[in-house]
Computed example of a mutant assay.
Amino acid sequence: MARMDDLRIDVVDDASAGELLTVRRAAFVTEAQLYGDPHIPALTQTLEDLRSDLARDDVVTIAAWAGPRMVGSIRVELESERANLGRLAVVPDLQGRGIGTELLMAVLEYLPEQTKEVWVFTGQDSKQNLSMYAKHGYEHQYDQHTGDLTYAYLRRILGEGEGEGEGEDAED
């Protein structure tokens, strides 16, 4: 399928919180079905909790819009020299068109200069997610068992220029 060329990527503010919650829930239903668990955090988070998260100084949430419609998002938690990615979501009807990759690469522009590594986790059985992260330089570090689920943790070490607003020029 063709990539989405008319995407606008920007920080999500409180005014878009409801739309963000809808995008995440739509996107994470597939994961919930894969793991047989309707209680994954992306599906149980309340609008109030999401608004609190968006207001945090150590969290940046960016989204992709196709025209007026939010079509994907990713959350970045910043801690010292590390960024932790989570909640990468793309609306089901547009998955497989490069939106997730665009968001993953756009994150680099929002990282503080001192960021040296980026971490992400996903379910061990989420083969498409694992493949996308590996394709973009994320290497498996360890697995963590939580109840019936096993999460794979991956890390990418940033090179010169990445994390300083120059991420769009970075090639793996």
Rank of each mutant, 00 (worst) to 15 (best):
G165V: 12
L43W: 09
D53L: 11
Q141C: 13
L130S: 10
V90K: 10
L88D: 01
V71K: 02
D172T: 13
D169G: 09
T30P: 01
L88W: 04
A17D: 02
L54I: 00
T146W: 11
H145I: 15
D10I: 05
Q124I: 13
I9T: 08
A26M: 11
G165I: 07
V71M: 02
E77S: 11
L54D: 00
L85C: 11
G137R: 13
T46N: 13
E171L: 14
T44A: 09
P41C: 06
Q144T: 14
L85V: 06
L104M: 13
Q144L: 15
T61R: 05
T115W: 01
T115A: 09
Q95A: 15
L34N: 03
V120A: 14
V71P: 05
P112D: 11
V59M: 11
F28Y: 12
L104W: 00
D37C: 09
T122P: 04
L54E: 10
T61Y: 02
L50T: 01
A42G: 13
A89L: 03
E19C: 05
F121H: 13
G137V: 00
S80P: 02
A106R: 00
I62Y: 04
Q141P: 01
N129L: 06
T146C: 13
V76P: 02
L103R: 10
D58P: 02
N129W: 03
H39Y: 07
V107E: 08
W65L: 00
T115D: 05
D148T: 15
L34K: 13
L88M: 04
Q95D: 03
T122E: 04
Y153G: 01
K135Y: 05
G72F: 10
D5W: 06
H140Y: 10
S52F: 11
I74Y: 00
D10C: 13
I157D: 12
G86C: 12
H39Q: 13
P68Q: 06
D143G: 09
G36R: 00
K116L: 12
K135N: 03
I74M: 07
M70F: 07
T122S: 08
R8S: 11
A17H: 09
Q141F: 03
V107H: 05
S16K: 10
E79S: 15
L149K: 03
D10W: 11
Q33L: 10
D57Y: 14
D49S: 14
E166D: 15
E162G: 07
L47K: 15
P68M: 04
G165W: 01
A17P: 02
D49Y: 05
L50G: 00
Y133Q: 07
F28N: 10
R56W: 12
Y35V: 14
P41R: 12
L108M: 12
P92Y: 10
L34P: 06
Q95V: 07
D58N: 13
P41V: 14
Q45E: 13
R24K: 14
